[in-house]
Computed example of a mutant assay.
Amino acid sequence: MIVKISVIIPVYNVELYLKDCLDSVLNQSFRDIEVILVNDGSTDGSIDILNNYAKNDSRVRVINQENKGVSAARNTGLDLSNGEYILFVDSDDMLIENSLEHLYKQSCEKDTEVLLGHAYRYFSNEEKVDFFYNKAELDKFEVADGKTLYSKLMERNLFPPLVYLFFCKKDFLCKNRIRFKEGIIHEDELWCVMVICQANKTTCAPFYTYLYRCRDGSIMNSNNYKYRIDSMKTVVNELCLIADNMTSIEELECSGWIYIRVFWLMDQIRLLSRRTHCLESSLFESCRLLILRVYNSLTYKQQKLCLIYYKNIFKFTKV
């Protein structure tokens, strides 16, 4: 049965936070939804909670699979979804009241393929703070093609590589075969760029939609530095392929900002390498070769930024 919105929630061992998440979705004022809960091999009490919600609300579907990671769980949910629009939610986070109604209404009014929401960081004491960008600045943007919007956001250091802020038409995702890279973390860094850079009509929503729960023990707070480094290296390679394929004059600024994101990720690899006390010996050489290849095609501001990251990496390799 076709519905207006599919909310896809990967679930893995989050029994302490799961009810808050599900209640925030199911109690939305917008009712024409399906909630696809992909149990990614949980070993705690999460599955019992999921089954209980499915029993009491016909909009809820539970899908069980062996543990394959969040990217695979999201892909599973997308494959099984029936919604006109797609929103991914993490199972330890929450939607803000009336978010779905506002997102759907704005997307229909603007006829967007992708609409970017806003998020608060949400702490255990219930304090809320803006995530990492200036909402007032984002509210100024009009509907534009994705490459243009990406360039404007990156130029102002405002681009949110956060999958749960992307409210997307399912047809758009399917037509462009946009899926999550499986077997890695930091998958948002890749998926969000693929999404926005292929959209013809996109903009930012002038309201908050999401509460990101800050807690210990999440994937991004874990100390598995080698896994994070390997994942970032995969994302770097994939982003370079995307930028390399932007060959027209109109795409040069966008491709330049993707390269800047690549240099930023390389710098993040440097920082993680310091924590592991294990030097990524190829990092400096990879950075140097990329600069030699793309430097002349970058804008002046982009050139300044990439040189900052280059110097950071160079100093690190000399320590």
Rank of each mutant, 00 (worst) to 15 (best):
I5H: 05
S6C: 09
I8K: 05
I9G: 02
P10T: 13
V11R: 02
Y12I: 10
Y12P: 03
N13C: 11
L16Q: 13
L18V: 13
K19H: 04
L22D: 10
V25E: 14
Q28L: 14
R31K: 15
V35W: 02
I36T: 03
N52F: 03
A54D: 12
A54F: 09
R59C: 10
R61P: 02
Q65A: 03
Q65G: 01
S71G: 09
N75W: 06
N75H: 02
G77A: 07
L78S: 01
L78P: 04
S81L: 05
G83C: 04
I86Q: 07
D90Y: 02
L95C: 11
C108D: 12
Y120P: 00
R121P: 05
N125D: 15
K128A: 09
V129P: 00
D130N: 11
K135V: 15
A136E: 12
E137R: 07
L138V: 10
L138G: 00
D139T: 10
F141W: 11
E142F: 04
A144F: 09
K147I: 10
K147G: 01
T148W: 01
L149F: 03
Y150S: 02
K152E: 13
E155H: 09
E155T: 07
L158N: 12
P160W: 11
P160S: 05
P161M: 07
V163S: 06
C168Q: 07
C168K: 01
C174P: 00
R177E: 14
F180Q: 09
I185G: 02
H186A: 08
D188M: 04
E189W: 06
L190I: 14
V193N: 01
C197W: 06
K201Y: 12
K201A: 10
T203M: 05
F207I: 14
Y208G: 07
T209C: 12
L211D: 07
L211E: 13
Y212C: 13
R213G: 03
S218V: 15
I219Q: 04
M220F: 14
S222T: 15
S222Y: 11
K226I: 15
K226R: 06
R228E: 11
I229F: 06
I229W: 01
I229R: 05
S231P: 06
S231N: 00
V235S: 01
E238Q: 08
M246L: 07
E250I: 13
E251G: 04
E251M: 11
L252P: 00
E253I: 14
C254E: 08
S255C: 04
G256V: 11
W257G: 08
I258W: 01
I260F: 09
I260H: 02
R261K: 04
F263G: 04
D267H: 03
Q268D: 13
R270H: 04
R270A: 04
R274Q: 11
H277I: 14
C278F: 05
E280V: 14
S281P: 05
S282T: 14
L283V: 11
L283D: 09
F284A: 04
E285V: 11
E285H: 06
R288N: 10
L289R: 08
I291V: 12
I291H: 00
R293Y: 02
Y295K: 09
L298T: 02
T299H: 05
Y300H: 09
Y300E: 15
K301D: 12
Q303W: 06
L305Q: 12
C306I: 15
I308K: 07
Y310K: 07
F316L: 10
T317Q: 13
T317P: 00
K318C: 07
